[in-house]
Simulated assay, not measured.
Amino acid sequence: MVHYYSADYVMPVTSSPIKNGVIAMDENGTVLGIYDNDSVPKNVEIERFKGVLIPGFINAHCHLELSHLLGKISQKKGLVKFITEVMSNRSADDDVIQKAMDLADKAMYANGIQAVGDHVNSAVSAKIKEDSKIVYHTFVEILGLREEEAAQKIDEAREIEFSFDSGHASITLHAPYSCSKVLFKAFKKSVSEDNIISIHNQESEEENKLFRYKTGEFLEFYEKIGFSADEFKAQARNSIQTYMSYLPTGNKVILVHNTYTSLKDLDFIRRMGRDVVMCICPKANLYIEDALPKVSIFEQNGCEIAIGTDSLASNDTLSVLDELKVLHKHFPELDFNQTLKWATINGAKALTLEESLGSLEVGKTPGLLLVKNMNHFKVTDKIEIERIA
């Protein structure tokens, strides 16, 4: 059966908004047609809404397995303190973890999220993802500061990767401050070009201090966990300018957070000629560091931008709409037509899901959301999302 939906505007994302547009979808959510008001097939029933119809959101960065930490981690204490508290509070009964993940998964779907790039350290989320209405790409994180453990850490990540959908899973390095140079080099040799990399980048100025000067809170953190940083050498440059050359050259790379990424860093990334997506998680950045990325310089430099929610350890919701509200509040010059791309098609491209998700195009199954209470395409606290399909 074909369903026809119309609203004040239809925003396909990859083409211009259509006033009083109509979307035709089958019962499986596949887009069969997109029409302006004058080209709709005759004698069909159309369900009409007040608002704006858009495709489902793409959450490019999340940690589903941390959902049980909602409200348990201190806010605005900085990244090193955040990591320390997560490590201390992470353990919980299996049923507690499973219940929290199940609730988070269902909440994301209700919040209009169609796909998620999810970071894991175990296989605990595999069953939730298998049964979910959401498409997940799972990134199995590799962490290893001790050089002699590099090969073992990669093998362990491969074992976890087997628990997830082979078409939507890859291994990835966690962050430059949690992986040795030897591990970076071993990783580079061990992955094929279709292995998407999603790495936490410059979430804190402490990361840049570590790589530039070998100073700051990470040295104290290493001491607490019993790791000697004696062999670590300051590079007199920010972290991204140090580690990017160690990443595989042909792989898509999602740089996550980028709270302290500078104009010089962006110039360095551009000169490296890599396929890079800048994923921003505004609410988590405020929760942890009480700071936001320099979104304007990302835009001005033509960066591909996607949006993530991070985890419930660093957020009170897993809602891309809430992330958009924060972005538009702090950067009122932003245009919804542009940020909608960040929240949909750019995230789909980052996760290599653009053939089926991220925009309203014939043949895709992108989901369909109604944006309510929106005037003149302005993002305010009043707007809400309702899932239509």
Score class of each variant (00 low, 15 high):
residue 6 S to W: 07
residue 305 I to D: 09
residue 178 S to A: 14
residue 350 A to D: 09
residue 131 D to S: 08
residue 338 Q to D: 15
residue 288 I to Q: 02
residue 127 K to G: 00
residue 155 D to Y: 10
residue 196 I to R: 07
residue 167 G to W: 00
residue 303 C to Q: 14
residue 289 E to N: 09
residue 15 S to Q: 14
residue 145 L to G: 07
residue 232 F to Q: 09
residue 246 Y to K: 07
residue 341 K to R: 15
residue 38 D to W: 00
residue 330 H to D: 12
residue 38 D to H: 11
residue 285 N to G: 04
residue 152 Q to Y: 08
residue 133 K to A: 12
residue 305 I to S: 06
residue 339 T to A: 07
residue 177 Y to G: 01
residue 20 N to H: 15
residue 123 A to T: 07
residue 113 I to K: 01
residue 296 S to P: 00
residue 10 V to W: 10
residue 223 E to F: 00
residue 328 H to Y: 02
residue 177 Y to L: 04
residue 273 G to C: 08
residue 243 Y to T: 00
residue 1 M to P: 00
residue 199 I to L: 07
residue 272 M to H: 01
residue 367 G to V: 02
residue 23 I to N: 09
residue 176 P to Q: 00
residue 188 K to M: 07
residue 308 G to E: 02
residue 154 I to F: 09
residue 20 N to S: 14
residue 257 H to Y: 03
residue 203 E to R: 03
residue 144 G to S: 13
residue 208 N to F: 11
residue 93 D to N: 12
residue 363 G to T: 02
residue 47 E to G: 03
residue 25 M to R: 10
residue 292 L to V: 06
residue 362 V to E: 11
residue 1 M to I: 01
residue 186 A to K: 11
residue 369 L to W: 03
residue 168 H to Q: 13
residue 152 Q to L: 06
residue 385 I to G: 05
residue 184 F to D: 14
residue 294 K to N: 13
residue 8 D to L: 04
residue 27 E to F: 14
residue 279 C to G: 08
residue 258 N to A: 03
residue 360 L to F: 06
residue 295 V to C: 01
residue 5 Y to K: 13
residue 333 E to N: 06
residue 210 L to Y: 03
residue 99 K to F: 08
residue 69 L to A: 06
residue 22 V to G: 04
residue 129 K to C: 10
residue 173 L to E: 10
residue 155 D to M: 12
residue 127 K to D: 15
residue 179 C to I: 15
residue 345 I to K: 10
residue 174 H to K: 05
residue 121 N to E: 11
residue 283 K to N: 14
residue 52 V to A: 02
residue 171 I to V: 15
residue 342 W to D: 09
residue 149 E to G: 06
residue 262 S to N: 02
residue 28 N to V: 01
residue 207 E to G: 01
residue 355 E to F: 01
residue 154 I to E: 06
residue 177 Y to T: 10
residue 159 E to G: 03
residue 85 E to N: 11
residue 173 L to C: 05
residue 238 N to S: 12
